[in-house]
Amino acid sequence: MNIYISCGHCLKERISLEFYPVEVNDEGVYELTCKSGHKTTSFLQNAHFEILFELGAKAFLDGYTREAISSFAASLERFYEFCIRAIVEQKEIDIKAFDDTWKYVASQSERQLGAFYFCYLSFFNEVPEKIPQKWIELRNNVIHKGHIPTLKKTEEYAEYLYGYMMKILTRVKKGCGQNVFKVLTKKQKLSNTEEMNRNAFTIPTAIDVSVRLPEFNKDDFKQAMEKVKNNKWIQAVSKS
C-alpha cells in the first residue's frame, strides 16, 4: 500500500501542493525528496493500530478475507498497546520505565491483553469488555490453521472490532485528554531531525483517532467502510 504525502518546504514556501506516493512502513517515518529537491522527514501521526485496521478494511473491500482478518487482529493487539500508553501518559509514569517494562510482554500477545485489562480496571475502576470466544476462535483458525473465512463472517468480525475499539477509545480519549495526542506524536518528538526538515501529517481513516471529542465516533461501521472505499490517501501500490 502507498500513502500520499506532501513536501513541508513547498507548503511553507507556497511553491506547490503536490502529493507523492510512498510505501506504507512499520515505523510511520518517511523520507521524501520532492521535485524541487527539498529533503523532508515526514512523520505519520496516525496510530499504528489505525493504519492496520485501514489495511484490513481495504483487504476486506477487495475480497481478501484471510488478509483482512489478519490485519484486523493485528490492529486489535496494537490497539491494546495504544490504550495502555495513553493511560501511562495520563498517570505520568516515566516513559523509559514503561518501555523497559513493555519489553517483558512485547513478544506475547496474551500478556499484553492481560496488561490492558488491568490498566483499564485500574484507570476506570470497571471490568473491561471481553472479546467473545467466537471471534477469538475465528482469529486463531485464520492465523494458525489456514482457515478461509467467508466475506459475511469477515464483515461481522470487522464490525464487532470496530464497535469495540471505538467504544473503548472514546472512554480513553475522555479520560486521558491530550495524552492521547502525546502518544500519536511520540515518534516526532524523539527524532533528531532538524525542525525545518520535519513534516508531521495525518491521513483520514475509518477510525480517525486524531478527531477530537465530541466529533469523534460519529460514524457507524457502514459509514466507516464507505470512508475507506473513498479514501484516496492510502492506495494499492501500482506495479506499472
Rank of each mutant, 00 (worst) to 15 (best):
Q108V: 14
H144K: 12
A115R: 03
I93H: 02
A106R: 04
N125S: 09
V105R: 05
L169E: 02
Y117D: 13
E156H: 01
S109F: 05
G114R: 14
I131L: 13
R78I: 12
E156M: 05
P132W: 02
T170K: 15
I84L: 07
I84E: 04
K96Y: 15
I136Y: 05
P128T: 00
V88D: 04
Y157W: 08
R139G: 11
H147M: 15
M165K: 01
K103R: 11
S122P: 02
V142E: 00
F118E: 10
K145T: 03
V172K: 02
R139Q: 06
K153F: 06
P149I: 04
W135A: 06
K167N: 15
V127E: 13
T154Q: 07
I143T: 10
K145I: 02
D99G: 01
Q108L: 11
K153S: 15
P128E: 00
D99P: 00
M166A: 03
L113G: 02
Y157I: 10
S122K: 12
D100T: 10
T154A: 14
D99T: 07
K130I: 14
Y164A: 05
T101V: 13
F98C: 09
H144A: 08
R139K: 07
K130S: 11
Q90W: 02
T150E: 15
N141Y: 03
F82H: 11
E129H: 00
K103P: 04
W135R: 03
R171W: 09
K153H: 09
I131H: 00
V88C: 08
K91C: 13
N141P: 02
S122V: 05
L161D: 05
W102K: 08
T150D: 12
A86E: 03
G114V: 10
F79R: 04
L113Y: 08
L169R: 00
K134L: 10
K153C: 08
A115S: 11
G114A: 14
K152M: 14
N125G: 07
R85S: 10
Q112H: 04
L121R: 09
Y104W: 06
M166R: 08
P132M: 06
L113K: 10
F79I: 05
I84D: 07
I136H: 01
A86K: 01
F116V: 03
S122R: 10
R111V: 09
W102P: 06
K130P: 07
G114S: 15
F124Y: 03
N141M: 14
K152S: 12
F123V: 10
K96H: 09
R139M: 08
Y164M: 08
S109C: 03
T170G: 01
I143N: 09
F124A: 01
A106C: 02
Q112F: 03
A106T: 01
I143R: 04
I136F: 00
Y80N: 07
S109P: 01
